[in-house]
Nucleic acid binder design. Sequence first.
DNA 1: ATTCGCGCGCAAAACGATTTATGCGTCATA
DNA 2: TATGACGCATAAATCGTTTTGCGCGCGAAT
Lengths: 335, 335
Amino acid sequence: MATIKEVAERAGVSVATVSRVVNHSGYVSNDLRERVETMMQMLDYKPSALARSLRRQETHTIGLLIPQLNQPFFSTLISAMEKTLFARDYRALICSSDEDAAKESAYIDILLRQRVDGVILVPTGHSTESIKRLLRAHIPTVMIDRDMPDLVVNRVLSDNYAGAYLGAQHLLALGHRQIALIGGPRHSQVLQDRVNGVQQAFRDFGTKFTPDLLILGTSPEFEVGYESALKLMQRPQPPTAIFALTDVIAVGVLHAAAELNLKLPEALSVMGFDDIPLANYVIPALTTIAQPIYGMGQTAVEILMRRLIDADRPPETIRLEDRLVIRKSTAPPPT
Amino acid sequence: MATIKEVAERAGVSVATVSRVVNHSGYVSNDLRERVETMMQMLDYKPSALARSLRRQETHTIGLLIPQLNQPFFSTLISAMEKTLFARDYRALICSSDEDAAKESAYIDILLRQRVDGVILVPTGHSTESIKRLLRAHIPTVMIDRDMPDLVVNRVLSDNYAGAYLGAQHLLALGHRQIALIGGPRHSQVLQDRVNGVQQAFRDFGTKFTPDLLILGTSPEFEVGYESALKLMQRPQPPTAIFALTDVIAVGVLHAAAELNLKLPEALSVMGFDDIPLANYVIPALTTIAQPIYGMGQTAVEILMRRLIDADRPPETIRLEDRLVIRKSTAPPPT
DNA sequence: ATTCGCGCGCAAAACGATTTATGCGTCATA
DNA sequence: TATGACGCATAAATCGTTTTGCGCGCGAAT
C-alpha cells in the first residue's frame, strides 16, 4: 500500500504538503493540490489510520463490550450504537464477554492497549475490578442497561423498577392475584429491580406476593421460560398469569402453554419485558414492557461523544422510561 | 498512559530491554527482567497496540462487514466469529452495511485505512466494485453466506439449492401440491438458489410449479411473512403449505395463520429456512432447513487464519450442507 | 531601500513501539 | 596471550503520519 512519502515524492512535494491536502488544513496552492490529488488517485493512497492515531493520540474507535451478541435485546442495542457511531465517524470494536468476568477483564485490557477513545459496556456484574481499571486509565466510559452502584461513571439505564411496576399493575388490575414471575440468567441487579417493582405493585394493591411464585433459572432464556412454565402449570394451584422478566423467556412460556393446550390469554395471561421486535409476532402477540432499546444505544453514544469533546464533563446518569404495551397475551383471569 | 520509554528510564534499562521482556523474546537476565516487570506493574503499563501495529505491519484486527446486525441469522454468525477470533487473539471491527451499497463501500474504505489484517463479509450484492478494491489491495478476504460468482475470493456458503430441494421434497412427500414460497428482501442470489432448488424438486416429482405461488416482498422479514401469508390464504385456492425462505419470515406466516384461526399443521403446513434458535420455540415448533450458522462463522475465520499464515494460499470455496429438521409445523395436507 | 507581512512550502521532530546492528565483558580454547 | 564464542544490553533506524518552526520570495508600506 502506498505511503504518504511515495505520494509526496511522485508529486514532487513534501510529505507535509500531502498531509495538508489530505486533511484540508493550512495553505496549499491549487496547482499543488491538484498534482497531489491526482497522484493519490493513481497510487490508490489510503492514509494509515494507525500512523494518524499514533500521532494524534486518538483512534476514533469505541469499544463495545457486551455480554452476548446473539440475544435480540443486545443485538438491537449493538445495531443502534453502530448506526450512531458511524454517523459520527467512529468505528466500533466488538467484544463479547459471554457473561464471564474473566473474558470481560481480558477484553478491557485489550481495549486499553488498543487505545480506544471510549468504551460502552453492559457489565457482566460479576466484578467491578476490571471496570475500575478502565476508569483509572481515564477512558471515557458509559455503562448501559445494568448498573454497578458504587462506580462513578456515565450510565444509561431504563427504569426497570417502574416498568415492572407497570406490568404487575396491569395484571393486578385485570384481576389476577396468582401471578408467577420467571427470571433468567441475566444480570441480578436488573432482575432484582424488576422483582422489587412487582412487589411494590402487589403492596399497593393490598396483596401479598408469595416467594414460591418467583422462579429463577440459569439455562438459556428460551429454556428457562419453557421449563419453568411447564412446572408452574402443573402445580395444584397454577398461576393465572405469568410475568416473564424478559421477552425471550416469555416466548418459552408461550411455547409451554401451547404444549399444554392452554388457550391464551383466556386460560393464562403472559406478560414480557423488553419489547424486542419479535414480541409483536409471537402468538398471541405479547403484552410487554417496552424498553427504548434503540434510544438507549443512541443515548449512550451521545453521552460518550459529549464526554469526548469536554473531558471534564461530570458523569451523568440517564434513566429512560419504560412503557406498557398491551397486545394480545393478557386478559382477565378465568372465573 | 505510561510508555515504554518511561518504564525503561525508571527501571534503569533501555527500551529495547523492556520490549524484550514484554514479548518474551531474546535474552534478558532475571535480575533485569524482574526490575522491568515490577516497574510495568507500578506504572500500569499497557503496550500501545497502535505503535506495535505500525511497526509490525499487522493489526491483529479483522473487519466484519455484515448487512444487518439485529437479525438472528447474522447475530448468530457474528457471535460465532467473535468467539473464534477471540480464541486466536484477534479483534473484530464490526461494520453494518444496512444492505446499502454506499455504506458497504464506505466501510471498505475505512477497513483499508485501518489496515485490518483481513475481512469477512456478507456482501449486500448490489455491486462488486467495492469488494474488488479490497482484493486489489490484497487484503485477505472471506465471503460468507452470499456469493458473487465472478470474484476470485474465499467463500463459505451453505448449499441453498440442496437445502431448498430437501424442504420442497419433504412437503411434496407429505402430499402437498399447492406450495407457496415467500422470499424476503435478503440477497437475491441466495433467494434464487432456494427457488431453483424448490423448482427442481417439483420437476423431480413430476409436478408443475406455478409462478403465482412465489411471493417476494421488500419490507422487513416479519412483515413480509405476515402480509404475504394473509394475502395467500385469502385466495380462492389457498396453498396447503407455505415454504418461508427464512425462519423470520416463517414466524410472520405463523402469526398470520393464528390470526386466521388456522389450526397448524393440519390446515396449513409451514416450513422455514435457517434454523435460528427461535425456530424451536415458536408455535408450532418450526420444521426448517438448518444451516450450520455457527459452523459457517467458525469456518470463515479458520480459512482467513490459514490465509494469514500462508499468503500464497489459493482461494477456496467451502459449501456446508443444510439439513432438514422436522418439527411440528408440517403435516399432510387436509383431505 | 529597508522592513514588514503574508502566502506558501519544506525539514524535522514527535507519537510508541520493534528490531537490527553493535558493543562490551567474560570465559574457554588454542 | 590472543581469539573466538557467548551472554547480555544498548543505540539507532524504522513504521506512516501530523504538526511546529522556519525560510523564501514577493508586494506593500514606510
